[in-house]
């Protein structure tokens, strides 16, 4: 169990090196809070510290979000490494999120 996790960790680390993400949320809207929590779980489990996450509150920076082409909240953008990806929703569908982020679980 422990070994497996280490393997997964090293594998994940190598594949998701410098995973840069930005999560757009709408303040404390239920789906937004859920998305933060769901992403936290995924990061903790598969990425440890090997990622960079910026959380943007659309209600506080609306014009920035508009310029970034954000439509609905919550939205998660994978900025690096390429290919870039965009995920919408509260990230409760874990396998879809991981597939989109390129994390092998």
């Amino acid at each position: 169990m422990r070994r497996k996790k280490t393997l997964a960790k090293s594998l994940g680390s190598r594949l998701t090196a410098a995973l840069v993400m930005r999560l757009y949320v709408a303040n404390s809207a239920p789906n937004s809070l859920l998305a933060i929590a769901n992403l936290q779980i995924i990061c903790d489990e598969f990425l440890q510290d090997n990622f960079k996450l910026e959380i943007v509150d659309v209600l506080e920076e609306p014009l920035r979000a508009l310029a970034d082409g954000i439509l609905v909240t919550p939205s998660l953008a994978k900025l690096a490494p390429s290919p870039i990806a965009k995920i919408v929703g509260n990230l409760s569908d874990k396998s879809s999120v991981m597939r989109a982020l390129g994390i092998r679980g």
Binding site: A26, S32, A85, N90
Partner: peptide, 27 residues
Amino acid sequence: LEAQLSPDVVQAGEFDLSGMLGMLKAK
């Protein structure tokens, strides 16, 4: 405001329009 979700966008769970409405309010 072009509000089409690109076909490449992955949907993972429920979303809402509160963010969009926030942006529209600012605009």
